[in-house]
Write a protein that binds this DNA or RNA. Structure first.
Length: 580
RNA sequence: CGGGAUGUAGCGCAGCUUGGUAGCGCACUUCGCUUGGGACGAAGGGGUCGCACGUUCGAAUCGUGUCAUCCCGACCA
């Protein structure tokens, strides 16, 4: 490709609306342009990158025995009602009506469609297991898209779905996909870590996320990990706590005045005690039902864990108004800061559930609210002064410095970008959608399903997050839009142009995707653009051609070398051939 | 969905306080000059100042409303 013909407009300045580096660089280097909120045009350079990522995925998925198909982007409401997700999926589901008034949605994911395809075609255990995948655009009407391609509303995703007859078969395919994913991301030049995670709205039990660990702050997920193999998303990470003082100094229970202590900080200061002897009570609304969460006051509730503990799908903290109302209908006059679990029966037509974090179980002589304004109960004990809730489980957010649940060493935390996930779905979709096959005994059984996603566009953006410098993008060779750029310093110098053209033609002949910068620009402009766009190799033909030498530089190295043109070609050709 | 900010040329911005026929840098076109890290000079093209209504002789500027975008939070691949 001639640079003079290449459809790319580099900008001298960063776009003002971009926050993270991948967004800034992809816009500035001419890869993407925003069409509307969270929706981007993939310009020619970007599309080449995307296709490379897709092809790596295709090769590895096919190698792993999966089969590609393509499902529609627009989906009918009926299938979503079968799975129960028309109601359960929130505002992210982009709903629309056709001219006949039929309700449809833009596919945010394709479990419903694939399950319908499977139940039409897979009638016998003899046909199983099967793994089907597609690479396609998805649309999720995010409340707040951001970070450019890392979190758009429309994005390209590879989604695969496996159908089998047993948990064992599912686990085998799960491992198969795990290995395929490991190969895919490695080939894309990304270091990933597989972490345990919550399975969220998609449902199911076991799931892992593949995270790109970057030094950037742009990762959206906190990942807790240990020097042993343990790694988990913050919404799933377990931890053992360091020793702490969990027994208060009071000998007997007593109610004491604690005026205006609306926060734990105010309470610890007022009583001059550590937060570790206080039981904190938080009010949440899970699917409209009130839930009290009890936790040691120095710790934070992990909302996803709490939501899962009561089997909900949506969670938020209660408003001050709701809390007051809840107090009133249960006969208390209290407010935030003085809440306790005792005596709260029902609210809004729901029985009030109480969930305690494990941290509170062994506490003694502790401080707790009793739903009375400006006082707290101190020296309280479970079973004597306050009932220990029936549900005692892990609902806390892990913290760096907590200990690994597997090996006991201190956990570390880092930011990660989720580029892939794998779920063991089980029968979550096959059962409600009556997607069944006949087993050896002629009995109908629901498929045991798994699903496996990779964010294609996000992977490309994550590669930029992981590989860039002050001058621009440093693409891994395997997903770079072009492998090399040939730069004649002066297009008016006949010898330089001739040699540059020869090099360019040689590269093309050997299967290298090359660009020749034939623009009548100053050298500085060409170098700046080459660095910004991120061509992995650069061959510059300048004055040294008089001595038969060209300058060779790899984008990921500072090293410059003056070598013969044929040697420069050979290095690039060899590197490109090694990709295969 | 809560809080904050911003909408003026493809990109980055000034002008608004104090209303008077819209400007700068980059990019783009032409000519000259220059040619190893985003040169220089000259001459050009390009904008219903987000939109609507209002105030006014006159609105980018003042008022009301509305839409959009961005940031923080909550939520999520």
């Amino acid at each position: 490709m001639k640079m003079s013909r290449l459809f790319v407009q580099t900008l001298r300045e960063f776009p003002s609306d971009a926050e993270v580096i991948s967004h800034k660089l992809l816009v500035r280097a001419g890869y993407i342009r925003k069409l509307t909120m969270g929706v981007y045009n993939y310009l020619p350079l970007m599309w080449r990158v995307i296709r490379k990522v897709e092809n790596i995925i295709r090769e590895e998925m096919d190698r792993a025995g999966a089969q590609e198909l393509l499902m529609p982007f627009v989906q009918p409401k009926e299938l979503w009602e079968e799975s129960g997700r028309w109601g359960a999926y929130g505002g992210e589901l982009m709903r629309l009506k056709d001219r006949h008034g039929r309700e449809m949605c833009l596919g945010p994911t394709h479990e419903e469609i694939i399950t319908a395809i499977a139940r039409d075609g897979l009638k016998s255990y003899k046909q199983l297991p099967v793994n089907l995948y597609q690479i396609q655009s998805k649309f999720r009407d995010e409340r707040r898209p951001r970070f450019g391609l890392l979190r758009g509303r429309e994005f390209i995703m590879k989604d695969a779905y496996s159908f089998g007859t047993s948990q064992e078969e599912l686990e085998k395919e799960y491992k198969n996909m795990w290995e395929a994913y490991t190969r895919i991301f490695k080939r894309c030049g990304l270091d990933t870590k597989a972490v345990q995670s919550d399975s969220g709205a998609i449902g199911g039990s076991v799931s892992h996320e593949f995270m790109v660990i970057t030094d950037q702050d742009s990762g959206e997920n906190d990942v807790f990990y240990c020097e042993c193999d343990y790694a988990a998303n913050s919404n799933h990470a377990e931890s053992k706590l360091p020793d702490a003082k969990i027994t208060g100094d009071w000998q007997e229970p007593q109610i004491i005045d604690t005026p205006n202590t609306h926060s734990i900080d105010e309470l610890t200061e007022f009583l001059n005690i550590p937060a570790t002897v206080i039981v904190k009570t938080l009010v949440y609304i899970v699917d409209k039902a009130p839930v009290l969460a009890l936790i040691r006051a120095d710790r934070t509730v992990e909302e996803t864990k709490l939501m899962n503990a009561v089997g909900g799908t949506d969670i938020r903290i209660a408003t001050a108004g709701e809390i007051e109302e809840m107090m009133a209908v249960n006969g208390f006059d209290s407010e935030k800061g003085f809440i306790g679990p005792q005596g709260l029966k029902e609210y809004n037509g729901f029985k009030i559930k109480v969930v305690a974090d494990e941290t509170v179980k062994d506490m003694k002589n502790f401080v707790i609210g009793i739903n009375k304004k400006d006082v707290h109960l101190v020296g309280a004990n479970w079973g004597v002064d306050v009932d220990l809730p029936e549900t005692v489980t892990d609902i806390r957010l892990a913290e760096a410095g907590d200990f690994c649940p597997v090996c006991g060493k201190p956990l570390k935390v880092t930011r990660g970008i989720e580029v892939g996930n794998i779920f063991q779905l089980g029968t979550k979709y096959s059962k409600p959608m009556n997607a069944v096959y006949l087993d050896q005994n002629g009995k109908t059984q629901p498929y045991i399903m798994g699903c496996y996603g990779i964010g294609v566009t996000r992977t490309a953006a994550a590669a930029v997050e992981a590989h860039h410098d002050d001058h621009g993008i440093i693409w891994p060779l395997a997903i770079a839009p072009y492998h090399a750029v040939v730069i004649p310093v002066s297009t008016k110098d006949e010898l330089q142009m001739k040699v540059a053209n020869d090099i360019y033609q040689t590269l093309l002949k050997h299967g290298v995707e090359a660009v020749i910068d034939d623009r009548d620009e100053r050298a500085g402009v060409k170098f700046k653009d080459a660095d910004l766009i991120g061509f992995p190799y650069r061959i510059t033909v300048g004055k040294t051609i008089a001595d038969g030498l060209v300058e060779f530089k790899a984008r990921n190295s500072e090293e410059l070398s003056n070598i013969k043109p044929e040697n420069a070609c050979e290095i690039v050709v060899t590197a490109v051939n090694n990709l295969k």
